[in-house]
C-alpha cells in the first residue's frame, strides 16, 4: 500500500492531503490540518472525544479511515465559529458550566449539534440518547444535558439554527 492524495472539504475549506495507508480521519484532522479540538481519548471508538460531522452525520474520526472521507464535507468544532462569534450551543455550555477539564467538550458539542440539526426540539431522553456515545469523567452529565436543553430552547425561541 502506498501513500495517497485525497481531497476533502473541512470546515468549508478545500483541502488536499497526503495520507499513509490506514490513516484515520482523526490523524488527518489533528496532525495534518492541526484542528486540535478533535481529541483522542481512546483511539478505539469508546469515548466520543474525536466526534466530527461527515456530510452532516456524527462520526467517530478515530474509527473513520481517511480514505473514506474522500470528497466529503467534514465539520469539526472549530468549524462552528466561521465568523469568530460564539454560537448559541457553545454559549449554553458556558452558561451551564458544562465542562471542567474540557477534554470531552468538543465531542459533546458536536454530538449535540448533530442531534439538534436533525431534531431541533429533543426530549430529555432523546438528548441523553444523542450524547450516549460521549464520555465525560469530570463534569457529570447533568450540566451537559441542561446545556443542550437550553440550546434547544434558545433555538425554538429565535428560530435560528444550532450553530
Amino acid at each position: 500500500m502506498e501513500d495517497k492524495l485525497i481531497r476533502l472539504t473541512v470546515n468549508g475549506r478545500d483541502e488536499a492531503v497526503i495520507i499513509q495507508p490506514l490513516a484515520t480521519l482523526q490523524d488527518v484532522l489533528r496532525d495534518t490540518l492541526e484542528l486540535t479540538a478533535v481529541k483522542s481519548g481512546c483511539g478505539q471508538g469508546g469515548c466520543g472525544s474525536c466526534s466530527v460531522l461527515v456530510d452532516g452525520e456524527l462520526r467517530l474520526s478515530c474509527l473513520t479511515l481517511a480514505e473514506r472521507a474522500e470528497g466529503a464535507e467534514v465539520t469539526t468544532l472549530e468549524g462552528l465559529n466561521a465568523t469568530n462569534a460564539i454560537v448559541p450551543l457553545q454559549q449554553a455550555f458556558v452558561e451551564n458550566y458544562a465542562a471542567q477539564c474540557g477534554y470531552c467538550t468538543a465531542g459533546m458539542v458536536m454530538a449535540a449539534k448533530a442531534l439538534l440539526d436533525r431534531n431541533p426540539a429533543p426530549s430529555r431522553d432523546e438528548i441523553v440518547e444523542g450524547l450516549s456515545g460521549n464520555l465525560c469523567r469530570c463534569t457529570g452529565f447533568a450540566p451537559i444535558v441542561r446545556a443542550v436543553q437550553q440550546a434547544a430552547q434558545a433555538l425554538s425561541d429565535t428560530g435560528e439554527e444550532a450553530s
Binding site: 496532525d31 492541526e34 486540535t36 479540538a37 481529541k39 483522542s40 469539526t76 468544532l77 472549530e78 462552528l80 465559529n81 460564539i86 457553545q90 454559549q91 455550555f93 458556558v94 458550566y97 458544562a98 465542562a99 471542567q100 474540557g102 477534554y103 467538550t105 468538543a106 458539542v109
Partner: peptide, 21 residues
Amino acid sequence: VGQRDLESHARGQTTYYEDVH
C-alpha cells in the same frame, strides 16, 4: 462566578500537551 477557561473549551481553543506539533 464564571469559569475562566469555559468559553475556550466550548470553542475548542484550549491547548492540551499534545496539541503542539
